[in-house]
Design a protein around this nucleic acid. Sequence first.
DNA 1: GCGTTAATTATGCAAGTGTATAATTCGGCA
DNA 2: TGCCGAATTATACACTTGCATAATTAACGC
Lengths: 215, 215
Amino acid sequence: MAGERRSFKREGEAARRESLIAAALQLIAEGGSEAATVRAIAVKAGVTPGLIRHYFVSKDDLTGAAYLSLMEGMVTKGLLAVDSAPDTPAARLATFIAASLRPPIMDATALGLWAGFLHRVRRDPAMAAVHEAGYMKYRDQLQSLIAALSLTTDKAVLRQQAIACNGVIDGLWLEGGALPRAFAPDELAEIGVRSVAAILGTDLPFPGPHSGDAT
Amino acid sequence: MAGERRSFKREGEAARRESLIAAALQLIAEGGSEAATVRAIAVKAGVTPGLIRHYFVSKDDLTGAAYLSLMEGMVTKGLLAVDSAPDTPAARLATFIAASLRPPIMDATALGLWAGFLHRVRRDPAMAAVHEAGYMKYRDQLQSLIAALSLTTDKAVLRQQAIACNGVIDGLWLEGGALPRAFAPDELAEIGVRSVAAILGTDLPFPGPHSGDAT
DNA sequence: GCGTTAATTATGCAAGTGTATAATTCGGCA
DNA sequence: TGCCGAATTATACACTTGCATAATTAACGC
Protein backbone atom coordinates (compact mmCIF):
# COMPACT_ATOMS: atom_id res chain seq x y z
CA MET A 1 0.00 0.00 0.00
CA ALA A 2 2.98 2.26 0.15
CA GLY A 3 2.52 5.11 -2.33
CA GLU A 4 4.91 3.96 -4.96
CA ARG A 5 6.36 6.84 -6.86
CA ARG A 6 5.13 6.76 -10.41
CA SER A 7 7.73 5.88 -12.98
CA PHE A 8 8.50 8.23 -15.80
CA LYS A 9 10.57 8.64 -18.91
CA ARG A 10 12.67 11.63 -19.82
CA GLU A 11 11.65 13.30 -23.04
CA GLY A 12 13.58 16.00 -24.73
CA GLU A 13 12.79 19.56 -23.85
CA ALA A 14 11.27 20.27 -27.25
CA ALA A 15 8.98 17.26 -27.16
CA ARG A 16 7.76 18.03 -23.66
CA ARG A 17 7.05 21.64 -24.44
CA GLU A 18 5.17 20.62 -27.54
CA SER A 19 3.08 18.02 -25.77
CA LEU A 20 2.21 20.45 -23.01
CA ILE A 21 1.22 23.07 -25.56
CA ALA A 22 -0.86 20.53 -27.46
CA ALA A 23 -2.64 19.49 -24.28
CA ALA A 24 -3.39 23.10 -23.41
CA LEU A 25 -4.76 23.80 -26.88
CA GLN A 26 -6.97 20.74 -26.81
CA LEU A 27 -8.45 21.72 -23.47
CA ILE A 28 -9.03 25.32 -24.46
CA ALA A 29 -10.70 24.23 -27.67
CA GLU A 30 -13.03 21.93 -25.82
CA GLY A 31 -13.92 23.90 -22.76
CA GLY A 32 -12.54 27.40 -23.04
CA SER A 33 -9.59 28.83 -21.24
CA GLU A 34 -11.09 28.04 -17.87
CA ALA A 35 -10.86 24.34 -18.66
CA ALA A 36 -7.12 24.53 -19.16
CA THR A 37 -6.06 24.29 -15.54
CA VAL A 38 -2.55 23.33 -14.67
CA ARG A 39 -3.73 19.97 -13.40
CA ALA A 40 -5.92 19.20 -16.40
CA ILE A 41 -3.11 20.05 -18.78
CA ALA A 42 -0.76 17.80 -16.86
CA VAL A 43 -3.19 14.87 -16.97
CA LYS A 44 -3.76 15.26 -20.70
CA ALA A 45 -0.05 15.46 -21.34
CA GLY A 46 0.60 12.48 -19.11
CA VAL A 47 2.79 14.28 -16.62
CA THR A 48 2.58 15.82 -13.20
CA PRO A 49 1.44 19.42 -12.63
CA GLY A 50 4.78 20.47 -11.25
CA LEU A 51 6.50 19.72 -14.51
CA ILE A 52 4.72 22.55 -16.21
CA ARG A 53 6.55 25.03 -14.09
CA HIS A 54 9.77 23.39 -15.05
CA TYR A 55 9.31 24.20 -18.72
CA PHE A 56 7.30 27.39 -18.45
CA VAL A 57 7.85 30.17 -15.97
CA SER A 58 4.12 30.41 -15.37
CA LYS A 59 0.84 29.15 -16.69
CA ASP A 60 0.43 32.40 -18.57
CA ASP A 61 3.73 31.69 -20.21
CA LEU A 62 2.46 28.33 -21.37
CA THR A 63 -0.78 29.63 -22.79
CA GLY A 64 1.08 32.43 -24.49
CA ALA A 65 3.34 29.93 -26.19
CA ALA A 66 0.26 27.90 -27.11
CA TYR A 67 -1.30 30.88 -28.83
CA LEU A 68 1.81 31.60 -30.79
CA SER A 69 1.97 28.00 -31.92
CA LEU A 70 -1.69 28.11 -32.91
CA MET A 71 -1.34 31.21 -35.04
CA GLU A 72 1.73 29.93 -36.80
CA GLY A 73 -0.09 26.70 -37.58
CA MET A 74 -3.10 28.44 -39.08
CA VAL A 75 -1.09 30.66 -41.40
CA THR A 76 1.11 27.78 -42.46
CA LYS A 77 -1.83 25.60 -43.40
CA GLY A 78 -3.34 28.34 -45.54
CA LEU A 79 -0.14 28.94 -47.41
CA LEU A 80 0.40 25.25 -47.89
CA ALA A 81 -2.89 24.80 -49.67
CA VAL A 82 -2.02 27.42 -52.26
CA ASP A 83 1.11 25.59 -53.27
CA SER A 84 -0.88 22.53 -54.26
CA ALA A 85 -2.69 24.41 -57.03
CA PRO A 86 -0.29 26.76 -58.75
CA ASP A 87 -2.13 26.81 -62.06
CA THR A 88 -3.66 30.19 -62.78
CA PRO A 89 -4.00 33.17 -60.45
CA ALA A 90 -7.74 32.53 -60.28
CA ALA A 91 -7.28 28.91 -59.32
CA ARG A 92 -4.75 29.84 -56.67
CA LEU A 93 -7.08 32.37 -55.08
CA ALA A 94 -10.02 29.98 -55.20
CA THR A 95 -7.97 27.22 -53.61
CA PHE A 96 -6.85 29.51 -50.85
CA ILE A 97 -10.41 30.50 -50.07
CA ALA A 98 -11.77 26.98 -50.19
CA ALA A 99 -9.00 25.68 -47.96
CA SER A 100 -9.86 28.32 -45.40
CA LEU A 101 -13.44 27.08 -45.34
CA ARG A 102 -12.71 23.40 -44.92
CA PRO A 103 -11.19 21.38 -42.15
CA PRO A 104 -8.76 21.60 -40.56
CA ILE A 105 -8.83 25.38 -40.75
CA MET A 106 -12.59 25.65 -40.48
CA ASP A 107 -13.92 23.49 -37.72
CA ALA A 108 -15.35 23.74 -34.27
CA THR A 109 -11.98 23.23 -32.65
CA ALA A 110 -10.36 26.17 -34.34
CA LEU A 111 -13.25 28.45 -33.52
CA GLY A 112 -13.23 27.32 -29.92
CA LEU A 113 -9.57 28.10 -29.65
CA TRP A 114 -10.02 31.49 -31.17
CA ALA A 115 -12.80 32.35 -28.78
CA GLY A 116 -10.92 30.95 -25.83
CA PHE A 117 -7.98 33.20 -26.48
CA LEU A 118 -9.83 36.36 -27.42
CA HIS A 119 -9.87 38.00 -24.03
CA ARG A 120 -6.28 37.38 -23.22
CA VAL A 121 -5.36 38.65 -26.66
CA ARG A 122 -7.16 41.84 -25.84
CA ARG A 123 -5.52 42.45 -22.52
CA ASP A 124 -2.01 41.22 -23.12
CA PRO A 125 -0.11 43.48 -25.53
CA ALA A 126 2.34 40.75 -26.45
CA MET A 127 -0.47 38.44 -27.46
CA ALA A 128 -2.20 41.27 -29.29
CA ALA A 129 0.93 41.70 -31.34
CA VAL A 130 1.00 38.02 -32.22
CA HIS A 131 -2.63 38.23 -33.19
CA GLU A 132 -2.30 41.28 -35.36
CA ALA A 133 0.72 39.83 -37.09
CA GLY A 134 -1.13 36.64 -37.93
CA TYR A 135 -4.16 38.47 -39.16
CA MET A 136 -2.18 40.82 -41.32
CA LYS A 137 -0.13 38.03 -42.79
CA TYR A 138 -3.29 36.25 -43.82
CA ARG A 139 -4.87 39.36 -45.29
CA ASP A 140 -1.71 40.32 -47.14
CA GLN A 141 -1.57 36.87 -48.63
CA LEU A 142 -5.15 37.25 -49.76
CA GLN A 143 -4.46 40.70 -51.16
CA SER A 144 -1.51 39.53 -53.20
CA LEU A 145 -3.55 36.67 -54.60
CA ILE A 146 -6.21 39.18 -55.59
CA ALA A 147 -3.63 41.51 -57.05
CA ALA A 148 -2.35 38.67 -59.22
CA LEU A 149 -5.69 38.69 -61.01
CA SER A 150 -4.77 42.12 -62.38
CA LEU A 151 -8.30 43.45 -62.07
CA THR A 152 -7.18 46.80 -60.76
CA THR A 153 -4.02 48.67 -59.95
CA ASP A 154 -5.59 51.07 -57.48
CA LYS A 155 -4.03 50.33 -54.09
CA ALA A 156 -7.00 51.67 -52.13
CA VAL A 157 -9.46 49.59 -54.10
CA LEU A 158 -7.27 46.57 -53.60
CA ARG A 159 -7.16 47.14 -49.88
CA GLN A 160 -10.92 47.35 -49.61
CA GLN A 161 -11.33 44.29 -51.77
CA ALA A 162 -9.01 42.39 -49.50
CA ILE A 163 -10.86 43.53 -46.40
CA ALA A 164 -14.21 42.58 -47.86
CA CYS A 165 -13.06 39.19 -49.08
CA ASN A 166 -11.39 38.52 -45.80
CA GLY A 167 -14.66 39.49 -44.16
CA VAL A 168 -16.68 36.95 -46.10
CA ILE A 169 -14.16 34.25 -45.40
CA ASP A 170 -13.96 35.04 -41.71
CA GLY A 171 -17.71 35.23 -41.44
CA LEU A 172 -18.32 31.92 -43.14
CA TRP A 173 -15.49 30.40 -41.13
CA LEU A 174 -17.19 31.60 -37.99
CA GLU A 175 -20.58 30.27 -38.96
CA GLY A 176 -19.23 26.94 -40.06
CA GLY A 177 -17.48 26.53 -36.75
CA ALA A 178 -20.40 27.68 -34.69
CA LEU A 179 -23.19 25.82 -36.49
CA PRO A 180 -21.58 22.92 -38.33
CA ARG A 181 -24.85 21.08 -38.82
CA ALA A 182 -26.52 24.03 -40.49
CA PHE A 183 -24.69 23.61 -43.77
CA ALA A 184 -24.17 20.93 -46.34
CA PRO A 185 -20.65 19.59 -46.74
CA ASP A 186 -18.50 22.01 -48.70
CA GLU A 187 -21.44 24.37 -49.02
CA LEU A 188 -19.56 27.14 -47.29
CA ALA A 189 -16.44 26.71 -49.39
CA GLU A 190 -18.57 27.04 -52.48
CA ILE A 191 -20.42 30.07 -51.19
CA GLY A 192 -17.13 31.61 -50.18
CA VAL A 193 -15.56 31.27 -53.60
CA ARG A 194 -18.67 32.52 -55.35
CA SER A 195 -19.04 35.51 -53.03
CA VAL A 196 -15.45 36.58 -53.44
CA ALA A 197 -15.86 36.29 -57.19
CA ALA A 198 -18.92 38.52 -56.99
CA ILE A 199 -17.16 41.08 -54.83
CA LEU A 200 -14.24 41.22 -57.25
CA GLY A 201 -16.51 41.20 -60.27
CA THR A 202 -14.80 38.25 -61.88
CA ASP A 203 -15.10 34.51 -62.26
CA LEU A 204 -13.42 31.95 -60.07
CA PRO A 205 -13.28 28.17 -60.57
CA PHE A 206 -14.46 26.04 -57.69
CA PRO A 207 -11.74 23.64 -56.61
CA GLY A 208 -12.98 20.13 -55.81
CA PRO A 209 -13.10 18.84 -52.23
CA HIS A 210 -9.70 17.23 -52.44
CA SER A 211 -6.80 17.70 -54.75
CA GLY A 212 -8.12 16.22 -57.99
CA ASP A 213 -8.92 12.68 -56.91
CA ALA A 214 -11.38 11.54 -59.60
CA THR A 215 -14.02 9.05 -58.43
CA MET B 1 -14.85 49.64 15.05
CA ALA B 2 -17.64 47.14 15.50
CA GLY B 3 -18.42 45.59 12.12
CA GLU B 4 -21.55 47.53 11.34
CA ARG B 5 -23.83 45.68 9.00
CA ARG B 6 -24.02 47.52 5.74
CA SER B 7 -27.33 49.18 5.04
CA PHE B 8 -29.30 48.31 1.94
CA LYS B 9 -32.40 49.17 -0.01
CA ARG B 10 -34.96 46.72 -1.32
CA GLU B 11 -35.36 46.78 -5.07
CA GLY B 12 -38.05 44.96 -6.95
CA GLU B 13 -37.28 41.46 -8.12
CA ALA B 14 -37.22 42.52 -11.77
CA ALA B 15 -34.78 45.36 -11.18
CA ARG B 16 -32.44 43.23 -9.13
CA ARG B 17 -32.38 40.43 -11.67
CA GLU B 18 -31.70 42.93 -14.41
CA SER B 19 -28.87 44.62 -12.58
CA LEU B 20 -27.26 41.29 -11.76
CA ILE B 21 -27.52 40.24 -15.39
CA ALA B 22 -26.08 43.53 -16.53
CA ALA B 23 -23.17 43.19 -14.15
CA ALA B 24 -22.45 39.66 -15.34
CA LEU B 25 -22.54 40.73 -18.99
CA GLN B 26 -20.20 43.63 -18.36
CA LEU B 27 -17.69 41.40 -16.63
CA ILE B 28 -17.82 38.70 -19.28
CA ALA B 29 -17.38 41.27 -22.02
CA GLU B 30 -14.34 42.71 -20.33
CA GLY B 31 -12.55 39.67 -19.08
CA GLY B 32 -14.24 36.54 -20.37
CA SER B 33 -16.46 34.19 -18.46
CA GLU B 34 -13.74 33.51 -15.92
CA ALA B 35 -13.90 37.13 -14.81
CA ALA B 36 -17.56 36.84 -13.93
CA THR B 37 -17.15 35.35 -10.48
CA VAL B 38 -19.97 35.47 -8.02
CA ARG B 39 -18.13 38.00 -5.92
CA ALA B 40 -17.17 40.24 -8.82
CA ILE B 41 -20.73 40.27 -10.09
CA ALA B 42 -21.98 41.17 -6.66
CA VAL B 43 -19.54 44.06 -6.31
CA LYS B 44 -20.42 45.45 -9.73
CA ALA B 45 -24.11 45.18 -8.98
CA GLY B 46 -23.61 46.78 -5.57
CA VAL B 47 -24.87 43.85 -3.55
CA THR B 48 -23.54 40.93 -1.56
CA PRO B 49 -22.61 37.60 -3.16
CA GLY B 50 -25.28 35.74 -1.27
CA LEU B 51 -28.01 37.72 -2.95
CA ILE B 52 -27.26 36.16 -6.28
CA ARG B 53 -28.40 32.83 -5.02
CA HIS B 54 -31.60 34.42 -3.83
CA TYR B 55 -32.60 35.38 -7.34
CA PHE B 56 -30.90 32.63 -9.31
CA VAL B 57 -30.76 29.00 -8.34
CA SER B 58 -27.10 28.85 -9.33
CA LYS B 59 -24.43 30.87 -11.05
CA ASP B 60 -25.05 28.86 -14.19
CA ASP B 61 -28.65 29.92 -14.00
CA LEU B 62 -27.59 33.56 -13.89
CA THR B 63 -25.24 33.31 -16.84
CA GLY B 64 -27.86 31.43 -18.80
CA ALA B 65 -30.34 34.21 -18.19
CA ALA B 66 -27.67 36.71 -19.16
CA TYR B 67 -27.11 35.01 -22.49
CA LEU B 68 -30.81 34.96 -23.25
CA SER B 69 -31.03 38.64 -22.47
CA LEU B 70 -28.03 39.36 -24.68
CA MET B 71 -29.42 37.54 -27.70
CA GLU B 72 -32.81 39.18 -27.39
CA GLY B 73 -31.12 42.56 -27.22
CA MET B 74 -29.06 41.98 -30.34
CA VAL B 75 -31.96 40.91 -32.50
CA THR B 76 -34.15 43.70 -31.22
CA LYS B 77 -31.57 46.35 -32.06
CA GLY B 78 -31.22 45.06 -35.61
CA LEU B 79 -34.93 45.07 -36.22
CA LEU B 80 -35.26 48.51 -34.70
CA ALA B 81 -32.83 50.05 -37.17
CA VAL B 82 -34.83 48.84 -40.14
CA ASP B 83 -37.92 50.62 -38.95
CA SER B 84 -36.15 53.96 -39.09
CA ALA B 85 -35.70 53.74 -42.86
CA PRO B 86 -38.77 52.24 -44.45
CA ASP B 87 -38.31 53.89 -47.84
CA THR B 88 -37.44 51.36 -50.53
CA PRO B 89 -36.53 47.70 -50.13
CA ALA B 90 -32.95 48.54 -51.09
CA ALA B 91 -32.71 51.27 -48.47
CA ARG B 92 -34.16 49.00 -45.85
CA LEU B 93 -31.63 46.27 -46.56
CA ALA B 94 -28.73 48.71 -46.63
CA THR B 95 -29.81 50.23 -43.34
CA PHE B 96 -30.02 46.82 -41.74
CA ILE B 97 -26.52 45.93 -42.86
CA ALA B 98 -24.99 49.23 -41.86
CA ALA B 99 -26.63 49.11 -38.45
CA SER B 100 -25.12 45.68 -37.90
CA LEU B 101 -21.68 47.11 -38.60
CA ARG B 102 -21.87 50.10 -36.30
CA PRO B 103 -22.08 50.45 -32.57
CA PRO B 104 -23.77 49.31 -30.49
CA ILE B 105 -24.09 46.05 -32.38
CA MET B 106 -20.55 46.05 -33.66
CA ASP B 107 -18.08 46.85 -30.94
CA ALA B 108 -15.51 45.18 -28.79
CA THR B 109 -18.00 44.54 -26.02
CA ALA B 110 -20.36 42.54 -28.18
CA LEU B 111 -17.57 40.44 -29.60
CA GLY B 112 -16.16 39.79 -26.15
CA LEU B 113 -19.52 38.63 -24.95
CA TRP B 114 -19.97 36.38 -27.91
CA ALA B 115 -16.59 34.78 -27.38
CA GLY B 116 -17.12 34.49 -23.66
CA PHE B 117 -20.29 32.52 -24.13
CA LEU B 118 -19.22 30.32 -27.01
CA HIS B 119 -18.09 27.34 -25.03
CA ARG B 120 -21.05 27.22 -22.75
CA VAL B 121 -23.30 27.55 -25.76
CA ARG B 122 -21.64 24.49 -27.22
CA ARG B 123 -21.96 22.32 -24.18
CA ASP B 124 -25.33 23.36 -22.84
CA PRO B 125 -28.16 22.25 -25.17
CA ALA B 126 -30.52 24.85 -23.76
CA MET B 127 -28.08 27.63 -24.57
CA ALA B 128 -27.42 26.12 -27.97
CA ALA B 129 -31.11 26.35 -28.69
CA VAL B 130 -31.19 30.01 -27.69
CA HIS B 131 -28.18 30.62 -29.90
CA GLU B 132 -29.55 28.87 -32.94
CA ALA B 133 -32.88 30.64 -32.57
CA GLY B 134 -31.20 34.03 -32.45
CA TYR B 135 -28.99 33.29 -35.42
CA MET B 136 -31.84 31.99 -37.52
CA LYS B 137 -34.03 34.93 -36.66
CA TYR B 138 -31.33 37.28 -37.83
CA ARG B 139 -30.69 35.38 -41.04
CA ASP B 140 -34.38 35.07 -41.82
CA GLN B 141 -34.75 38.78 -41.38
CA LEU B 142 -31.88 39.30 -43.78
CA GLN B 143 -33.34 36.85 -46.24
CA SER B 144 -36.73 38.52 -46.28
CA LEU B 145 -35.09 41.89 -46.84
CA ILE B 146 -33.24 40.38 -49.79
CA ALA B 147 -36.37 38.73 -51.08
CA ALA B 148 -38.11 42.10 -51.07
CA LEU B 149 -35.67 43.23 -53.75
CA SER B 150 -37.34 40.73 -56.09
CA LEU B 151 -34.07 39.76 -57.74
CA THR B 152 -34.94 36.09 -57.81
CA THR B 153 -37.74 33.76 -56.85
CA ASP B 154 -35.59 30.67 -56.53
CA LYS B 155 -35.69 29.63 -52.89
CA ALA B 156 -32.37 27.83 -52.99
CA VAL B 157 -30.61 30.81 -54.53
CA LEU B 158 -32.19 33.04 -51.96
CA ARG B 159 -30.96 30.83 -49.14
CA GLN B 160 -27.40 30.90 -50.40
CA GLN B 161 -27.54 34.62 -50.91
CA ALA B 162 -28.69 35.04 -47.34
CA ILE B 163 -25.93 32.79 -46.04
CA ALA B 164 -23.29 34.61 -48.01
CA CYS B 165 -24.49 38.07 -47.03
CA ASN B 166 -24.76 36.99 -43.45
CA GLY B 167 -21.22 35.71 -43.77
CA VAL B 168 -19.85 39.06 -44.91
CA ILE B 169 -21.68 40.86 -42.18
CA ASP B 170 -20.55 38.47 -39.49
CA GLY B 171 -17.01 38.53 -40.75
CA LEU B 172 -16.78 42.29 -40.84
CA TRP B 173 -18.49 42.43 -37.46
CA LEU B 174 -15.86 40.10 -36.13
CA GLU B 175 -12.97 42.05 -37.55
CA GLY B 176 -14.32 45.35 -36.40
CA GLY B 177 -14.67 44.01 -32.89
CA ALA B 178 -11.31 42.32 -32.85
CA LEU B 179 -9.23 45.06 -34.48
CA PRO B 180 -11.13 48.30 -34.01
CA ARG B 181 -8.14 50.47 -34.77
CA ALA B 182 -7.48 48.80 -38.09
CA PHE B 183 -10.35 50.50 -39.88
CA ALA B 184 -11.55 54.01 -40.54
CA PRO B 185 -14.83 55.02 -38.93
CA ASP B 186 -17.77 53.59 -40.84
CA GLU B 187 -15.37 51.94 -43.27
CA LEU B 188 -16.71 48.51 -42.46
CA ALA B 189 -20.33 49.54 -42.80
CA GLU B 190 -19.55 50.88 -46.25
CA ILE B 191 -17.65 47.78 -47.27
CA GLY B 192 -20.45 45.64 -45.97
CA VAL B 193 -23.14 47.36 -47.99
CA ARG B 194 -21.02 47.36 -51.11
CA SER B 195 -20.10 43.69 -50.75
CA VAL B 196 -23.65 42.60 -50.24
CA ALA B 197 -24.64 44.60 -53.30
CA ALA B 198 -21.93 42.82 -55.28
CA ILE B 199 -23.00 39.42 -54.05
CA LEU B 200 -26.60 40.10 -54.98
CA GLY B 201 -25.63 41.72 -58.26
CA THR B 202 -27.52 44.90 -57.59
CA ASP B 203 -27.07 48.43 -56.30
CA LEU B 204 -27.57 49.52 -52.73
CA PRO B 205 -27.54 53.06 -51.34
CA PHE B 206 -25.20 53.75 -48.45
CA PRO B 207 -27.10 55.12 -45.49
CA GLY B 208 -25.35 57.99 -43.71
CA PRO B 209 -23.78 57.51 -40.29
CA HIS B 210 -26.81 58.75 -38.40
CA SER B 211 -30.39 59.25 -39.39
CA GLY B 212 -30.14 62.21 -41.71
CA ASP B 213 -28.82 64.88 -39.37
CA ALA B 214 -27.41 67.50 -41.76
CA THR B 215 -24.44 69.42 -40.39
C1' DG C 1 29.31 -0.24 -13.18
C1' DC C 2 28.94 4.44 -10.78
C1' DG C 3 28.30 9.05 -9.43
C1' DT C 4 26.17 13.49 -11.01
C1' DT C 5 22.84 16.30 -12.83
C1' DA C 6 18.72 17.66 -14.28
C1' DA C 7 14.12 16.00 -15.35
C1' DT C 8 10.26 14.47 -12.94
C1' DT C 9 7.21 13.48 -9.03
C1' DA C 10 5.20 14.45 -4.45
C1' DT C 11 3.57 17.41 -1.01
C1' DG C 12 1.98 21.58 0.86
C1' DC C 13 0.11 26.28 0.95
C1' DA C 14 -2.38 30.62 0.43
C1' DA C 15 -5.83 32.62 -2.27
C1' DG C 16 -10.05 32.29 -4.76
C1' DT C 17 -14.25 29.60 -6.19
C1' DG C 18 -19.43 28.39 -5.71
C1' DT C 19 -22.69 27.39 -2.33
C1' DA C 20 -25.21 26.56 2.06
C1' DT C 21 -27.04 28.54 6.12
C1' DA C 22 -27.78 31.68 9.87
C1' DA C 23 -28.25 36.43 11.29
C1' DT C 24 -30.12 40.92 10.37
C1' DT C 25 -32.86 44.85 8.59
C1' DC C 26 -35.97 47.06 5.49
C1' DG C 27 -40.79 48.10 4.23
C1' DG C 28 -45.55 47.20 3.94
C1' DC C 29 -49.75 46.19 6.63
C1' DA C 30 -52.51 45.77 10.78
C1' DT D 1 -47.15 52.58 16.07
C1' DG D 2 -45.50 47.91 16.10
C1' DC D 3 -44.83 43.58 13.97
C1' DC D 4 -44.00 40.16 10.50
C1' DG D 5 -42.16 38.32 6.31
C1' DA D 6 -39.13 38.72 2.74
C1' DA D 7 -34.95 40.84 0.95
C1' DT D 8 -30.38 41.38 2.07
C1' DT D 9 -26.06 40.70 4.54
C1' DA D 10 -22.67 37.91 7.06
C1' DT D 11 -20.19 33.86 7.94
C1' DA D 12 -18.54 29.41 7.11
C1' DC D 13 -17.22 25.32 4.36
C1' DA D 14 -15.48 22.23 1.00
C1' DC D 15 -13.17 22.38 -3.12
C1' DT D 16 -10.16 24.09 -6.87
C1' DT D 17 -6.60 27.02 -8.53
C1' DG D 18 -1.64 28.40 -9.44
C1' DC D 19 2.64 28.10 -7.43
C1' DA D 20 6.72 27.01 -4.37
C1' DT D 21 9.67 23.65 -2.55
C1' DA D 22 11.56 19.28 -1.28
C1' DA D 23 12.21 14.46 -2.45
C1' DT D 24 13.22 11.08 -5.99
C1' DT D 25 14.87 8.87 -10.14
C1' DA D 26 16.14 8.31 -14.95
C1' DA D 27 19.85 8.96 -18.15
C1' DC D 28 24.42 10.37 -19.49
C1' DG D 29 29.58 10.76 -19.18
C1' DC D 30 33.37 8.62 -17.05
